[in-house]
Amino acid sequence: MSKLKISVVLLFCLFACKPRNKQKNSKFTVVTTTTMITDLLQNIGGEAIEVKGIMGPGVDPHLYKASEGDVAKLTQADLIVYNGLHLEGKLVDVFEKMNQIGRETVALGGLLTEKQIINSEAFVSAHDPHIWFSIDNWKKITKELIVFLSKLNPQNKAVYQKNGAKYIEHLNALQQEVKTKVEELPKENRILVTAHDAFSYFGKEFNFEVLGLQGLSTTTEAGVRDVQRLSNLIIQREIKAIFVESSVPQRTVKALQASVESKGKEVKIGGELFSDALGNTNEETGNYIGMFRYNVNTIVNALK
């Protein structure tokens, strides 16, 4: 048995048999994984629910391992919401244990149809897990969560429906704003080179060619051949900028930049994008809409 599985079993034994100390008038409690999901549940639930996110700003969900405190939160939750599609690959055993003790869980990837998910044989689940980078997907997930929450916690149904409808209006406005911004960029310049392959949904929805130095998961490492291949392509296609990510070490992208420079050409670091996690809660990038707007402005302005 691996060290990870042993730790999960030990933590499970510590908390699984403890009673949930829910006060009679306490709020419906939802525990979430990524910051994007935390933000989504806060928008739908508002004051009607208590949302507890286990991952903070800048945290890489591909590498995240459950702490003792996380397991305590999960075992006390009324609902656990996670991305699924193996984004939180090191938490799979934990979610299975939560199901075994009767905790209600929902994976957002399971709320989408096969047509809405990008297939990838290069990832463990054979699907690209970065589903939030499609605004269409995020709207569909919002609608499905409204229904799910309303059935699970019917006394707050009106709140979920009202808040959810308002949030979808905001997502519609964001989608139009992004389309308008992208139109500033000539089609031949719409080539997005990033640290890892997190932006394929964005590329599909807004007509960008997306090239990641690492694969779909940050658990993979970019090799010398990857750097050489991509640096040659940058030179051939005359790509103006490449991008680092807030939740991924910058060394691979800087190595790519150095490789281009070693061949007598230049490519700039166009800025830092937010991929697998939001920014700090007190900043523009601390919510999904602000993060998406910031990313698009950064990309378009750097590639003009």
Rank of each mutant, 00 (worst) to 15 (best):
K5C: 01
K5G: 00
S7Y: 05
L10T: 04
F15W: 14
R20E: 15
R20S: 07
N21P: 07
Q23N: 08
K27E: 05
L40D: 02
K52S: 08
G53L: 09
M55I: 09
D60A: 04
D60S: 02
S67F: 09
G69A: 07
V71F: 08
L74M: 15
L74Y: 13
A77F: 07
V81N: 08
Y82E: 11
Y82D: 04
L91I: 15
D93E: 06
D93R: 13
D93Y: 04
K97Q: 14
G110S: 12
G110E: 11
E114V: 14
I118E: 01
H127G: 02
H127N: 13
P129S: 09
H130C: 05
I131E: 03
T142H: 09
K151Y: 14
Q155G: 05
K157E: 13
V159I: 13
Y160P: 01
N163P: 15
Y167H: 11
I168P: 10
N172F: 04
K179I: 00
T180P: 01
N189L: 08
N189G: 11
R190A: 06
R190L: 10
V193L: 09
A195K: 12
D197I: 03
A198F: 03
F199Y: 10
G203M: 05
F206Y: 07
F208Y: 06
V210S: 07
L211R: 12
G212S: 01
L213A: 02
L213T: 12
G215R: 02
G215S: 07
L216R: 15
V224N: 14
Q228V: 14
N232A: 11
I234G: 04
Q236E: 15
R237S: 11
E238D: 10
I242S: 07
I242H: 03
Q250F: 08
Q250H: 05
T252I: 12
V260A: 14
G264R: 04
K265F: 04
E266T: 14
V267H: 12
G270Y: 02
F274D: 13
F274V: 02
F274R: 09
N280W: 00
N280P: 02
T281L: 00
G286T: 11
N287A: 03
N287T: 11
Y288F: 01
Y288C: 00
M291S: 08
M291F: 08
I299V: 06
I299H: 08
V300K: 04
